[in-house]
């Protein structure tokens, strides 16, 4: 169990990266928020890379700010924009992190390469890998010490749709039985794997709950309707549009709004994407 209590991070410039965030984490938690919301800073504090200015982070009851090693032995971390040492092979790269984490034996490295489907290119230099392959190598290094807590920061950024789905499935598979924190600004990334979702904005936590709770909070705030494509630009300026699909009879809109946004719009069942938009625009119940 990971417990974050009133954690804040203030930079030397005086700006807050994270402000007074409290949450309890169990299972797979998706951390959602736009760029600059403070997700990365929060994850870096949990990963013991940087210290909070105030507040406590407890892992199984131990304050990891005061005793970071208690967590580090049980942590797997994949930072945002993870890079690789181009001249090393996948096997060498993973062996290096295995040694640093005190994991012995080549067998574990081979197992992990197989788990992330890189065993066939184990002896190829990682500089020639695609973005998706590098990310899979990144998740392999995060899992090499068989950690109890896995933190992955924006792991799907820059991946093509196919790689994205593959990565999501991989995370769901390896995350079972572990505590996983996955940060992203893409709602569909967490939809499939997270059993709890935390939404951050401007350094603060603005919502936290199960996907069902978030969906319930958006009920009555999502509308669907059809309008002429000529009116779309006017509507875009006036409304929070969740999706717009052009069809033969006009543009099919989904809109987040506290009241009926235009004539003919009917209340619709919210998706997680709608719920996220509701939270960000302050329209969630």
């Amino acid at each position: 169990m990971l417990s974050i209590e009133s954690v804040s991070k203030r930079f030397r410039s005086g700006n807050y990266g994270v402000r007074n965030v409290s949450l309890n984490v169990s299972g797979v938690v998706g951390l959602l928020g736009p760029n600059g919301a403070g997700k990365t800073t929060l994850m870096q504090m949990i990963a013991t890379i940087t210290k909070p200015t105030s507040g406590r982070i407890l892992f199984d009851g131990v304050d990891v700010v005061a005793k970071p090693d208690a967590l580090r032995r049980r942590l797997g971390y994949l930072p945002q924009d993870f890079g690789v040492y181009d001249n090393l092979t996948a096997f060498e790269f993973l062996s290096y992190f295995a040694a640093l984490k005190g994991v012995g034996g080549k067998q574990r490295v081979r197992e992990l390469l197989e788990a992330v489907n890189l065993h066939t290119v184990a002896n190829r230099a990682v500089g020639g890998f695609s973005g998706g392959m590098k990310q899979r190598l990144g998740i392999a290094q995060a899992l090499i010490g068989n950690p109890d807590l896995v933190i992955v920061d924006e792991p799907t950024a820059g991946l093509d749709p196919e790689e994205r789905v593959r990565f999501r499935n991989l995370l769901a598979e390896v995350g079972s039985g572990k505590l996983v924190i996955l940060s992203t600004h893409v709602v569909s990334d967490v939809e499939a794997v997270a059993n709890e979702i935390a939404i951050m904005k401007g350094g603060s936590l603005v919502a936290m709950g199960t996907p069902e709770e978030l969906l319930r909070s958006a009920e009555g705030s999502v509308w669907a309707g059809v309008m002429a494509s000529t009116e779309l630009d006017v509507m875009r300026a006036r409304l929070t549009i969740s999706s717009a699909v052009r069809k033969a009879d006009g543009v099919h809109l989904r809109v987040v709004s506290g009241e009926q946004p235009f004539a003919g719009a009917i209340a619709a069942e919210p998706t997680l994407e709608d719920a996220y938009l509701c939270t960000m625009t302050g329209r969630a119940a």
Partner: peptide, 17 residues
């Protein structure tokens, strides 16, 4: 600098090293 630019340093910092 190499560990900073590749961000592998962040991973190293999250270990018990």
């Amino acid at each position: 600098r190499r560990d900073v630019s590749t961000r592998c340093g962040f991973v190293l910092a999250s270990t018990g090293m």
